[in-house]
Design a protein around this nucleic acid. Sequence first.
DNA 1: TATAAAACCTGAACGCGTTCAAAAATAATC
DNA 2: GATTATTTTTGAACGCGTTCAGGTTTTATA
Lengths: 231, 231
Amino acid sequence: MKKEPKPETAKTNKGEQTRALIMETALEMLREQGYEQTTMRALAERAGVSLGNAYHYFNSKEQLIQAFYARTHEEHIEACAALLEGERSLKKRLLAVMQAKLDTIEPYHQFAGVLFKTAADPKSHLNPFSKQSAPIREESTRLFAEVVNGSDARVHKEIRDELPRLLWLYHMGITLFWIHDTSHSRRRTRRLVEITVDLIVKLIALTSNPLMRPLRKAVLEIMRELREAEQ
Amino acid sequence: MKKEPKPETAKTNKGEQTRALIMETALEMLREQGYEQTTMRALAERAGVSLGNAYHYFNSKEQLIQAFYARTHEEHIEACAALLEGERSLKKRLLAVMQAKLDTIEPYHQFAGVLFKTAADPKSHLNPFSKQSAPIREESTRLFAEVVNGSDARVHKEIRDELPRLLWLYHMGITLFWIHDTSHSRRRTRRLVEITVDLIVKLIALTSNPLMRPLRKAVLEIMRELREAEQ
DNA sequence: TATAAAACCTGAACGCGTTCAAAAATAATC
DNA sequence: GATTATTTTTGAACGCGTTCAGGTTTTATA
């Protein structure tokens, strides 16, 4: 029989401190030196911990990125709360959220390549479509739901439910472009966001047009297919 | 001064033979055992060559994938030539090309994850948006141009020039989905291709509608932006 | 306070991709 | 054929991510 440690002391365990120490050191090093330079050995040394011990808390180097990913995600969610307050225009809301995203991730552009490289692997836990990423994915989707629901835009009822997921997919596409964007201060991505947000809002306005019916149906079917693929 | 070897003997050099031997052995092993199992040491041993020598001909393990990528691409182009012969329906042409793509890459699905993982890295030569991939990308785009031009579909003149590039982008998206597709025989991807090809053809038919003018403009602007990003 | 259990930590070792100085084989030149 | 230049080949070595058997410290129990 395994006995649980007293829950009120569990959080102040030595282990928790060590984990936090390693994690903070890792984020520091990732920002300062990028991914390749941040070797597990260098990290362990800087944190004043043995190599094996670092692995006791983070099963792989990839898990460091995961922690990192979670953090920028939190920052983004937080930043958006203030931005959406009192704004009713869908275009402005979506634009604000997307720009906040770019602002949040900008400091880490130098090692975003590695992040994406890892995330692209179907076997990786970091893969945005994976089960492990579901919590972040869902929270992110909820943000886009709020963008739409808090606006005064009228959305055809057939696609209303799918729209947040569509916007989440869109935001992944923008992130993909951003990673490959070598322009100064990511100007190109910012420009692309302006154009595409404009396009999306126009498209949404068109959804009620009878001419659009076959397109609506097709898009819904595609989204259903994509959802079923999540397993 | 460096002297060139006699060109007529250059191709039958001992080196060329060794290179071919390593390459064939690599493709064999990749197919049989996947990427991780195909270590450079195992490859060298099977090819009856020293480890250092393998590196003399392939600067990195990644280059093996590149050779592999080029080969499946050739196969696809070849397969399409026969398929497009005598068919005028845009929908059928596009569908045939996409299905041929899936057929070509299916045998390698098991290690496609690694391929994509590598390709996603902005620094990688395999990255489909990179300079190094330009020849394959352009040849592929040309294929999609032929799909459109050889059909009887009427395409609004404003987007006619961009359509092949749009279709190439679409085909990259499908490939991305395919990599993550764990369904039997990639059924989901095949279904997705059917749906999306249908949607695309409908969209193309709609392009001439005046209502679509702002969308056309926006799409063109996005494509211009994407093209400028290729540097 | 003594003892058992759990949590925490260590460093050597493994296999990997990759590099490199130098040896061996081949080709070019005289 | 002897000498030189070039190409081809070797295997040891490096640093990396990762594993693991076993030690040390902390916590729970008596």
